Computed example of a mutant assay.
Amino acid sequence: MSKTVDSPKTPQNENNLAASIVIFVIMMALFLGSIYSLSFLTLGNPWPMAVCLGLFASAFWIPQTVLGRSDSAGEH
């Protein structure tokens, strides 16, 4: 039996460099905004912590689920 060897294929949904930089800048702004919101945190005002958790969760969740996983990891 002959074995067929699949040649590596370039992912069709991989972002180009400019799109990756724009996505990175937006997600970093969300992350830094979440850290900045903690400067307003007091014992009497819990809303800055809620904003922090929301911004951090969205900065983590958006690239993972909405934009999709990177296909450049080399998994077969």
Rank of each mutant, 00 (worst) to 15 (best):
S7E: 15
S7G: 05
P8N: 09
P8D: 08
K9W: 06
P11M: 03
P11Y: 04
P11F: 05
Q12C: 01
Q12R: 10
N13K: 06
E14T: 11
E14G: 01
N15E: 05
N15G: 00
N16P: 09
N16C: 10
N16S: 15
L17C: 04
L17P: 01
L17H: 10
A18N: 03
A19M: 09
S20V: 01
S20E: 14
I21N: 04
V22T: 06
V22K: 11
I23N: 15
I23F: 12
V25N: 01
V25R: 01
M27R: 05
L30Q: 01
L30S: 01
L32T: 07
G33F: 04
G33Y: 03
G33T: 02
S34N: 09
S34Q: 07
S34H: 10
I35T: 08
I35Q: 07
Y36S: 07
S37W: 04
L38P: 00
S39C: 07
S39Q: 14
F40S: 12
T42P: 05
L43N: 13
N45W: 13
N45F: 15
N45G: 03
P46R: 10
W47F: 11
W47T: 10
W47K: 07
P48Y: 07
M49D: 04
M49Y: 13
A50G: 13
A50F: 15
V51D: 01
V51P: 00
C52V: 01
L53W: 03
G54Y: 08
L55Y: 03
A57F: 12
S58G: 06
S58H: 03
A59L: 03
A59S: 15
A59M: 08
F60C: 07
W61S: 15
I62D: 01
P63E: 08
Q64M: 13
T65S: 04
T65H: 04
R69A: 11
R69F: 03
S70G: 05
D71W: 02
D71A: 12
S72E: 11
